[in-house]
Design a protein around this nucleic acid. Structure first.
Length: 109
DNA sequence: CTACTGACGTCGC
DNA sequence: GGCGACGCCAGTA
């Protein structure tokens, strides 16, 4: 609810931090919530700075439910382990029941 | 200062 | 219905 003075970059962190436990969201969902449907790439890129923040980037995946960003984590297996640790079923870098664990900020927020 | 790339997604053909 | 190209903003070369 901060004024739009915050950069697109910062808004992503605000939403990502609000992702509930055991839930995941997609870059496009966040971008859509921010009103920048065409800027889904920026959402993922913003996560580059999420390492220093309390942003659970491991809960953010692409529209297909693929752990595309796992490569940017400390370890390629870290992201999947974190998701499984939260009760999310992950198979071959793909989230199972993605539509069930999916968390839409524009819908639930 | 200019150009290219990048955790994606939508539109176009 | 499947494949290709473009677009968003910011950071780095």
């Amino acid at each position: 609810m901060q004024p739009e003075t915050l950069s697109f970059f910062d808004k992503v962190f605000q939403v990502a931090k609000q992702i509930p436990y055991g839930r995941v969201t997609s870059y496009g969902a966040i971008a859509n919530y921010l009103g920048a449907v065409r800027s889904a790439r920026m959402v993922g890129y913003a996560m580059n700075g999420s390492h220093n923040k309390d942003v659970p980037a491991h809960r953010v995946v692409n529209r297909k439910g693929l752990l595309t960003g796992k490569h940017h984590f400390d370890g390629t297996k870290l992201m999947q382990q974190l998701l499984e640790s939260e009760g999310i079923q992950v198979k071959d870098n793909q989230i199972q029941e993605f539509e069930i664990v999916f968390w839409d900020p524009s819908k639930e927020l």
